[in-house]
Design a protein around this nucleic acid. Structure first.
Lengths: 195, 195
DNA sequence: GTCTATATGAAGATAGAC
DNA sequence: GTCTATCTTCATATAGAC
């Protein structure tokens, strides 16, 4: 149980992932070298390979972890009463979750093409499941007459694009608080699918 | 006036830009080598430097050209009668222009961080001017009572994000025609800012 | 677990012949 | 304008000492 001297696996591992996350978000996966990540962590490049088999897996783990946390957090939300409150809950949840993780979100959207085919398929499955969750809300609302949209699939994509776009400009401590942003976007989302 | 034999500047130049556009969109600027571009064009890597001083300028020229064409095309639209028709015109124009140029749009959004600071500033100025054009439409509509939004700046960002998101899934010849997509999105945009 | 050293390859860009 | 050849630097990844 006691670790040998010089054994820092439990602390270095997270630091490697944190450095990779920050650097990938800043400069892009392809533009960041393992040496840069190592320098940021404070080790030599070779030492990184104690924590990841290769650079590709490092990227994939960051993206998979992000998507799993997204799905997990969503499943822990309380059950809403009707489609309207489900949509409001989804809107506020999406904005909050994404505002807290700008780097993860950026990578999850920008680095898809740098995943190898198998890894890409896994991430896409998770993303698709998230989109389907929103579409289910819209379908319920259309069925109950609360919403009116021409195509629930397209409407779900439109709403998610609108909400995720917040990350291109929103900064904590800026002109608007997250609460104000939530209110503004919920107003627009609500109206956009209104019957 | 007559060109010397073996002089293909007028044809090779566009081919270099076309290859760079396609490859940058597919794999990302940082992941594409000058040798790959050269292979795609059918020349040796050194020959590319007859058409661009360096790789960075090649990227910048593609993005600047795209933004200039965007601004130009918008300015050639007929003057709309009121805010509502101006917003519909903007919506349809944005969808059409972007659907015709998926690679350019992709690069313009994904490769901003690979521009050097001066080039980035120039592109951002153009992008900002486009966003301001939409915000002006919203301001006019709010002033006339046709629209109601909490914040015209945020609403403009939300609408643009929603519309640009179409490029992540829309393909010519897919389930929906561009005309149908225009109708669906115009319906959502119209309602989202409705008084 | 981390280091130094290195194998192996590829990158951006330039020089000079044709 | 394009070629071949090359300079220089950097990349991912591994081997073996400590």
């Amino acid at each position: 149980m006691a670790r040998t001297a010089g054994s820092h696996s439990d602390i270095t591992g997270p630091r490697v992932r944190a450095a990779a996350l920050k650097l990938f978000a800043q400069h892009g996966y392809a533009a960041v070298s393992m040496r840069q990540i190592a320098r940021d962590v404070g080790v030599q490049a070779g030492a990184l390979y104690n924590y990841t088999p290769d650079k590709q897996t490092l990227l994939f783990d960051l993206m998979r972890n992000h998507m799993h946390e997204l799905m997990q957090a969503r499943q822990e939300l309380p059950a809403p009463e009707d489609a309207q409150s489900a949509l409001e809950q989804f809107t506020r949840f999406h904005l909050q979750f994404h505002a807290e993780r700008p780097d993860e979100v950026f990578i999850a959207y920008m680095e898809l093409r740098n995943l190898n085919p198998e890894n890409f398929a896994e991430i896409e499955t998770l993303r698709r499941r998230y989109e389907d969750a929103l579409e289910d809300i819209l379908k319920t609302g259309v069925a109950s007459g609360q919403f009116q949209v021409h195509d629930t699939k397209i409407a779900a994509m439109a709403v998610i694009a609108m909400l995720t776009g917040v990350n291109t400009w929103f900064r904590q401590g800026g002109r608007l608080s997250l609460g104000e942003v939530e209110k503004i976007y919920w107003d627009m989302v609500r109206k956009s699918v209104h019957a």
